[in-house]
Structures are given as C-alpha cells and as structure tokens.
C-alpha cells in the first residue's frame, strides 16, 4: 500500500469521525444531508458484498466493516435519535436522491467489468458514490452559516477522493496490469464535484472569514 492510498483511507476515516463527533458529542446533525448519508449507506452495502466472497487483508476487512457500520449508524441517528433528529434541516435537504439511483443502476448494467451480480453491484456503488455528495453540496449552498465541523467533514471527504486519484496515478506507473477504468472515471468525476467547494473553503480560510457558498 502506498502513502497516497493510506492517507486517502485515513482522511476518509477522519471525515467519518468528525461526523460522529458532531452527532455524539454536540448531538447535532445541522447542515448534514441525510440524503447523502443514505446514499453512502447504499454505496458501502452494495460495494462490500465481497466481504463474504473475497479476503484481501485484515486491514481491508476492518475498514470495510467500519465504513459499513458508521454509515448505517449515522443514518439511524439522523432518522431516529430523539435529540439528534430534531437538528436535521429537513426543509432544506430536498434533493430527490432516489432519482440518482436509477441512472446509476442502468449504467452499471451496461458498463461493468463482468456481467455478474457482484460486479454489477460493484459498478453501481462506484457510480452512485460519484454523485452521492450532490445533496450535501446543495444543502451547504442553502445553509447561511456553515459550522466548522460540517466544513471540515466535506473537506476531508474531498481530500480522500483527491488522494485516491494520486494513488491510482502512482499504482499505474509502479504496478503491472493495474487498470481500473470504471473506478478511475467515476472517481475523477467525483473529485471534480468538490472543486468548487475547495475553492470557497480555501478562500474563506485565507481571508479568515466564515465559510459561505454563493447562492
């Protein structure tokens, strides 16, 4: 495992920890899109079906279980926890996320590495992950005051994606037969979606003002 991949996994892990910290200690999910969290829960459930069929490493298995468990528990907290659910910006979080799922499924049926159940689900999870951040970005744009933890959460997620792109470049040049077109294209699309957010985040950081996205 190279340094970019490890750093990518760690920023992903930190993003989840930041979100759990906000939910557990502040008992708030203000500014967090339940739609995006639901999509992530579906993404990890459909991608990690290979937990039952393929063993890669202990690291791989543990990380998969962490991402599965945390994404499902975050959705549960936002929907059912008696305190946390009250802070959810339901009226602002109106992105019709289920509309994203059908095109991703159709694309996965058409473009996959092999036409089997596991491979189609794997491709579906990659296409869905590429667009899963959209409801969160729309919610951020509507929120007047983005709190620090929410800003850091999205920043860490974006960093995780960017580090994975570096990891692919590194692996392409150092490993033989390392080619994953589906992962690369959907991963690059996903990273580009963060570009706008990155720009405004660093502007606000540089000028030392509160993060606000233009409407």
């Amino acid at each position: 495992m190279n340094i970019f991949r490890l750093a990518g996994d760690m920023t992903h892990l930190f993003s989840v920890l930041v979100l759990l910290l906000k939910i557990h200690t502040i008992k708030s999910c203000a500014g967090i899109s339940l739609k995006t969290q639901e999509l992530y829960a579906i993404v990890f459930t459909t991608r990690y079906l290979d937990l039952f069929t393929t063993y890669i490493s202990l690291y791989n298995t543990i990380m998969k279980l962490i991402f599965l468990g945390s994404s499902i528990s975050i959705v549960w907290y936002m929907r059912h926890h008696k305190v946390v659910r009250r802070s959810y910006d339901k009226d602002q979080d109106t992105f019709r996320h289920y509309l994203l799922m059908l095109p991703c499924l159709l694309l996965a049926l058409l473009i996959n590495e092999k036409f089997t159940f596991l491979e189609v689900m794997w491709a579906f999870s990659l296409y869905l992950e590429a667009v899963a951040i959209l409801p969160q970005l729309v919610l951020l744009q509507r929120t007047r005051n983005i709190d620090n933890l929410t800003g850091q959460y999205v920043l860490l997620l974006g960093a995780y994606r960017a580090l994975y792109v570096l990891n692919w470049i590194y692996r392409y040049f150092t490993e033989e037969n390392y080619v994953h077109w589906i992962t690369w294209v959907s991963g690059i699309v996903q990273t580009l979606l963060y570009a706008d957010f990155f720009y405004y985040y660093f502007q606000s950081w540089k000028n030392n003002v509160k993060l606000q996205l233009p409407a």
Binding site: I56, S57, K64, E113
Partner: peptide
Amino acid sequence: CFQVPQKDEL
C-alpha cells in the same frame, strides 16, 4: 475465461 482484476481498494 475473462478474469476481472482484484478489487483491493476501499
């Protein structure tokens, strides 16, 4: 038979 590459990333 066509072999798909191993998926060792998360």
